[in-house]
């Protein structure tokens, strides 16, 4: 399920991520062929960020991106490892290799929305609102960004989750650790 501010935008009963995300791409009318070249983590981050930016920060350029997860790029790392494990059949795939870093998904979002902004990707054991709050507050208070796209985007085999939000100085909800935690747990 994909929701925006509590309203369901897309729902599909499929248990397979590849089927679900392709269906979401079509249903949400996202016309961006490079999407199909992305790894699963990037597809997940890209679609959620696209919905959020188009809804509340379209055509803005000074949007920093601060994302986090638990599994880093492990899902794609495993795929790449399989492709190089047989010495007799050793043909590493360049298009898989380029996604063996988690912050590549930030690059995909930045390319689509023409963002030349600050960005960071953190690896935590679990969703960590305090760290996201500290980093976003710092970016806003030091005028490094007008808005900050923050959140959690995690993908490991068929277990995945994304929770993204945008912070700005004059936002509708007070930016506190408790509010971030509350929103994460009400998704």
């Amino acid at each position: 399920m994909i929701s925006l501010n509590g309203n369901t935008l897309f729902e599909n009963k499929s248990e397979e991520f590849s089927t679900l995300i392709k269906s979401a791409y079509k249903d949400l009318d996202i016309n961006y062929p490079k999407f199909f070249k992305m790894d699963n983590l990037s597809k997940l981050a890209f679609i959620c960020a696209d919905i959020l930016i188009n809804n509340s920060a379209k055509n803005e350029s000074n949007i920093a991106i601060v994302l986090s997860n638990r599994a880093s790029s492990l899902d794609t790392d495993r795929t790449f490892q399989k492709s190089i494990s047989d010495i007799e059949n050793h043909y590493p795939s360049p298009s898989i290799f380029v996604y063996t870093l988690p912050n590549i998904c930030i690059g995909e979002i930045s390319i689509k929305h023409q963002l030349y902004s600050e960005n960071s990707f953190f690896i935590f054991d679990a969703f960590s609102p305090k760290e996201l709050w500290v980093y976003a507050e710092n970016l806003l208070k030091t005028n490094k960004a007008e808005k900050v796209l923050c959140g959690w985007v995690d993908f490991d085999e068929n277990d995945y989750e994304a929770f993204l939000y945008i912070v700005e100085n004059e936002g509708q909800i007070h930016h506190t650790i408790n509010e971030i935690d509350r929103l994460y747990h009400t998704q």
């Binding site: 070249k37 043909y91 795939s93 298009s95 380029v98």
Partner: peptide
Amino acid sequence: LGLDSIDALELIVMLDK
């Protein structure tokens, strides 16, 4: 087709493989 530099590398691997 609008292929990019990573696609070129992938085609080089395909030719070899």
